[in-house]
Simulated scan of single mutants.
Amino acid sequence: MYKEKIMIIAMLLVLVFNVVAPVQVSHAASLNSVVSTLGASTVPGTDGGGSSGGSNIFEKLFSFLFDKILGPILNIFDGGKAATTSPDSPVKVTPLPSGDGSSVTGSSGVLRGKVIVVDPGHGGSNPGAVANNTRESDNNLAVSKKLRDKLTSAGAKVVMTRETDRTVAAEGSSLGQELAARVNIAEANKADIFVSVHSNSNPNPAIYGAMTFYPSGKSSQLALKVQNGIVKATGAVDKGTSPATFHVLRNTSMPSILVEMGFVTNAGEARKLQEDSYRNKMAQGIFDGIVSYFAN
């Protein structure tokens, strides 16, 4: 029995030396891996015919050697720092507050208190340009109402010349009377700016793009700001700005523009002008231009 103990201790020391040497170099082994290695190579299975006394002595020596002496010295328990980040230990994550997704455009308050008249061109018995199953008056009204909502949210006082599919003057009035009725609304409300919204047409269906008109000698900056806003928001072809003598431009005393959003005679542009998402982009572009105008 004594000789058996001496042999076991000698074998243990040899095995410990073989295992501890690489551990000292890497410092990466865990106690579990060392136990597995030693157990697999030295401890006989229950069906191997080994004596239980030898196994018990081995286990006690092994436990004493690693738990009391080698473990504290080599710091191999728990595998060093790597063991402190167990995947079973949840990491507390504090999420950032989510935004509300709202646009900050116009949040500076430059539109607060401004009186803006939005004029959806045509309407009622005068649908304007009609092509590719699209009526100009419908496009004009849809975008104008979206623009109204954006301006109102930014603090502006918005006056619409029409909010339904109708003429502004009494039905049966002349074209001159119809246009004069729109100008009169702007003048009566002492508007800061007047924005007339239209859709274009051309005998050549290949022509497309957005453009903005202004009265000769004034309002060119408003037109430029709005045109730039439209192009940026929609990606429309930029057909630029130009002076014009339209009735609603030459007869209004405040800065005035007439926006031509696109050509209903062009199939692709007509399709876009009927899309709610594109209409929203168009309204956003006009809105951004107006904010930029008042901000400067």
Rank of each mutant, 00 (worst) to 15 (best):
N228A: 13
A236G: 12
M11N: 15
K272N: 02
T252G: 05
L179M: 06
P97V: 09
V14L: 05
N139Q: 05
L147W: 05
K281E: 06
S277M: 11
S86N: 15
G123L: 08
S196Y: 06
S137Y: 01
P203D: 12
I6F: 06
K232Q: 07
M211I: 14
K232I: 03
D78F: 15
S125N: 13
G240F: 15
M7R: 10
A244P: 10
S89K: 11
A129H: 07
F66H: 05
L147T: 06
V16T: 06
A170D: 11
D165W: 14
I230F: 06
G172Q: 06
G50P: 09
S107R: 15
D67V: 10
G209V: 12
K68S: 09
V159K: 04
K272E: 01
T152G: 05
S89Q: 11
S51D: 05
E260N: 02
V158C: 04
P215A: 08
T42L: 08
I57N: 00
P120R: 01
D100P: 03
N139D: 03
G172T: 07
M261N: 05
K232M: 04
G124I: 06
G121D: 06
N133S: 09
E59C: 01
T245G: 13
L222E: 02
N228W: 14
F294S: 01
S199D: 13
G268S: 14
I57E: 01
L258M: 08
G53W: 08
Y293M: 11
V248Y: 02
T134R: 00
P215N: 03
V237F: 12
P22C: 05
F17N: 02
T46H: 10
N296E: 07
R162C: 08
T134C: 00
T134M: 00
L147M: 07
L258I: 11
N56T: 13
T105R: 04
A188D: 13
D138Y: 04
S41N: 08
G101E: 09
F287P: 03
A40H: 06
R162Q: 09
K60L: 07
L222C: 11
G217W: 08
V93Y: 13
F77Y: 11
I9P: 00
V264D: 04
L179W: 01
D192T: 15
D165G: 14
A270I: 03
V130Y: 00
K68V: 12
A28C: 06
T105Y: 06
V237Y: 10
K218G: 04
D149V: 10
E260R: 01
D47I: 07
R279Q: 14
T37R: 03
V20Y: 00
T241V: 15
A10Y: 03
G109P: 01
A21Y: 00
G50H: 07
A191L: 04
T252P: 09
L15D: 10
K239L: 13
A236D: 12
